[in-house]
Design a binder for these strands. Structure first.
Lengths: 134, 134
DNA sequence: CCTTGACCCTGTAGTTGCTACAGGGTGCAT
DNA sequence: ATGCACCCTGTAGCAACTACAGGGTCAAGG
């Protein structure tokens, strides 16, 4: 059941270039090749790539994905490290949400202040312009 | 009242390298130089850079900042384009918030499922692992 | 048997928005 | 005159891909 890179890409919803990129940075192992020098993937690689994609979908950056992968290989180890990684990431996500929420408020205020007319008296431009103009 | 690049950076809270970068990509004009080939900034550049920084703080990407700048120069023009730009950006911010909120829920669920123990029975790793393992 | 087209290969450069050097020059104070 | 903070250019690096260019391979149809 060898898969070509294209088939692997389809089953994991990953672009071919991305798979080669993951190989280049050592996230995926170099697979065996066919006679025609095509990459031939098996179940192990499929599993590993699925894992990577799921972690990426959850927003883990690649270095954390790498850490999770090596933790998952070390099955006797204490789970606390994994938990800490996930908690850190959650904190980060929450910080981003807070930042964006503040931003949304500011933007919404800017937009409702726009009463039409020309740029010369546009409140949005005014709000961006330096103090001298206000 | 000529400012050096460092002084301009301090007043606008911008790194020197970033100012030079903005000049390189044409967001800031090339300023006159002193005898010693130092950039000499005036009030106009200070205003323009302040505008850029404010827009960036509001999360506008550089190409939108560029658009806002050229709109603000064209003061007789209809304000609707500015408004549309801001609305588009707001929509984008809202999409990101929604994405991150969904992510937060998933991550939180993952974390509460972790009951300690070894990696072998870690729910977080399991959730990431391919179907075969579940 | 040959050609067409879809796939695969490597290697490199582009994206966004900076940031960080390396290897020099300038300007002012001591 | 010498130290130090600042300035200059040019280039390379970050994340995480994406997009070529310029080739090779393979199965199917004529």
């Amino acid at each position: 059941m060898a898969l070509t890179i294209g088939e692997l890409g389809k089953t994991t919803d990953t672009k071919v270039e991305t798979i080669r990129y993951y190989e280049r940075i050592g996230l995926l192992p170099k697979p065996p090749r066919t006679g025609g020098n095509y990459r031939a993937y098996g179940a192990a690689e499929l599993g590993r790539l699925s894992f990577i994609r799921r972690a990426r979908d959850l927003g883990f950056p690649l270095d954390q994905v790498r850490a999770l992968l090596s933790l998952s290989d070390d099955r006797g180890r204490d789970c606390a490290t994994v938990d800490a990684l996930a908690r850190d990431h959650l904190t980060e996500v929450e910080r981003k949400i807070a930042d964006l929420t503040a931003l949304r408020r500011e933007l919404a205020a800017l937009i409702t202040s726009c009463g039409g007319g020309t740029v010369a008296d546009c409140r949005i431009i005014e709000a961006l312009a330096p103090h001298a103009n206000r």
